[in-house]
Nucleic acid binder design. Structure first.
Length: 497
RNA sequence: GGGGGGAUGACAGAGAGGCUAUGUGGCGGACUGCAGAUCCGCACACUCGGGUUCAAAUCCCGAUCCCCCCUCCA
């Protein structure tokens, strides 16, 4: 039963995703037709967001955008972990309260991610807002006999009692103990048991519970909040690769133990980001925050760079890589700007049938066919496990067709341009591109008038072969970020990106 | 020790039995007063050794090398 490439990419087969639970590419069938509920593990707010976070959240942003593109009604929830050991330590070091510290970094980090052009999830949920849900969930697990309370007032999950524990990370309790890196703890029945609730030490932030003052363990918040906001089971659960074990493994154990149903239907894990070939870490001094990055590079170039690698693969961040990405994106941007001009003034809604109806000349037919071809290749690529590199390649191929069409002298009805433009822009937006307002003169009539006057003076200089003046005008404008280009039909200008 | 992912042209990076992406960079040409953009063309690939097949970068076996996880981490 050999399948050809074309069959494998048949759009009618729908979205296929690689599920970490089985490590296989499987058809995506949401639990409820037409609706997708997704949960992605978000930030622990003790420091600024870094470029590894951005990689992960761009990936899930694209996945969410594509599912919407396909017509699904997507509800995307992301947590904010604002109670955690690292925050306690960082706050202590900074000499501020735990709450003050986590608030500051919630604001900073979310702001930075938004500035890099990642769309906010439909809801963020904070651990401190869901203490009741967390306590209730722990009580359910205890009632079901899968957790126990220690003498000190902590609650531990009893790993040995959980059937199937280890199914996500593909390991058994026995193997984990053989690893021997787990410190035996007199409070635990089994060294692999993990805390659902930690009894508070003096001076630690704490909340009341049936087991005394304490705070939630690391994993329980995601089980509690996802159930509260999305129900259980829900469709997609995602996060960075490193979260497979122990975080997600433990979430599965807790949620299944509490509710007796499956937790999430599909698990998606993004590949890690390295910096110039090395693991990014504070000790190596190659730790790059989103803030720093945005001082040096345009957000859209960074997003393009991310999307150039498949979401499951490791990505090697490099200055050269971003520079190359910026150059490649520039090609698409130029094409987009030219295309924008062709549809300006076209007020009718974009309509495939209107486009078909007006595809009379060869030029029009070519444009229509190029658009159709692009749409099918783009969809096939994205259906295939959200293959963004292939989708970007398709965008470039289409851009090539579009540039040919743009330089064609044959008359092309605006409905065709609108159809092509819409396909190009919407696909680009799925890939997080083309978010910024077009960098042309449309919105700035005064500037355009000034530029036209300057270009006229320059044109006169050129006519008398006064190249010094002509070049001086061009060079001075380049210094202020305006590119002048001589075309056959006359000079044009644009803001350099 | 256990689990997992890789090795594709100068570089980045898809593809997964016959179609040999795409981009950046390089070279040559067209267009230009020059530049840019654009177009046309060229060069440079599938880690190694076996096997299966009419056909292998793609499947199988073996080797070498790299990376990640098993501890906080997106």
């Amino acid at each position: 039963m050999a399948e050809s490439r074309t069959e494998k990419l048949d759009p009618s087969r729908g979205v296929r995703i690689t599920d970490s639970l089985t490590n296989e590419k499987v058809p995506f069938v949401p639990l409820e037709p037409g609706r997708v509920r997704m949960y992605v593990c978000g930030l622990t707010v003790y420091d600024d967001a870094h470029i590894g976070h951005a990689r992960t959240y761009v990936s899930f942003d694209v996945i969410r955008r594509y599912l919407e593109y396909k017509g699904f009604d997507v509800r995307y929830v992301q947590n904010i972990t604002d109670v955690e050991d690292k925050i306690i330590k960082a706050a202590e070091k900074a000499g501020v309260s735990h709450l003050e510290h986590s608030r500051k970094y919630t604001q900073r980090a979310l702001g930075d991610l938004a500035r890099i052009g990642i769309r906010d999830p439909d809801a963020f949920c904070k651990v401190t807002d869901h203490m009741d849900d967390i306590v209730a969930l722990i009580e359910e697990i205890i009632e079901n006999g899968l957790a126990y309370v220690s003498d000190s007032g902590s609650v531990y999950f009893d790993v040995a009692k959980k059937e199937g524990y280890g199914k996500l990370s593909n390991r058994s309790v026995k193997e984990m103990l053989a690893g021997a890196r787990v410190e035996p703890d007199p409070e635990k029945r089994n060294p692999a048991d993990f805390a659902l609730w930690k009894a508070a030490k003096p001076d630690e932030p704490h909340w009341e519970s049936p087991w005394g003052k304490g705070r939630p363990g690391w994993h329980i918040e995601c089980s509690a909040m996802s159930e509260r906001l999305l129900g259980q089971p829900f469709d997609l659960h995602g996060g960075g690769r490193d979260l497979i074990f122990p975080h997600h493994e433990n979430e599965i154990a807790q949620s299944e133990a509490a509710k007796g149903t499956d937790f999430a239907k599909y698990w998606l894990h993004t590949g890690f980001l390295n910096v110039e070939g090395e693991k990014m870490s504070k000790s190596l001094g190659n730790f790059i925050t989103v803030r720093e990055l945005l001082e040096r590079h345009a957000a859209d170039a960074v997003r393009y760079f991310y999307v150039l690698t498949h979401w499951r693969s490791p990505i090697d961040f490099s200055e050269k890589g971003i520079t190359e990405a910026a150059a490649a994106l520039e090609r698409l941007t130029r094409t987009r700007e030219e295309l924008d001009k062709r549809v300006s003034g076209h007020e009718q809604p974009v309509d495939r049938y209107l486009a078909v109806a007006n595809a009379a000349s060869d030029a029009e037919k070519r444009l229509f066919e190029a658009t159709e071809r692009f749409l099918s290749v783009f969809t096939a690529a994205m259906d295939d496990d959200f293959n963004t590199p292939e989708a970007v390649a398709a965008l470039h191929a289409f851009a090539g067709d579009l540039r040919k069409a743009l330089s064609d002298n044959g008359h092309v009805h605006k409905a065709l341009w609108a159809y092509a433009h819409d396909a190009f822009i919407r696909a680009g937006r799925v890939l997080t591109l083309f978010q910024d307002a077009p960098a042309e003169a449309a919105g700035d009539k005064t500037l355009d008038a000034v530029m036209q006057a300057l270009l006229k003076i320059r044109q006169e200089a050129r006519e008398r072969k006064d190249w010094a003046t002509s070049d001086a005008i061009r060079d001075r404008l380049a210094e202020v970020g305006i590119e002048v280009q001589d075309e056959k039909t006359g000079a044009t200008w644009r803001r350099a990106s």
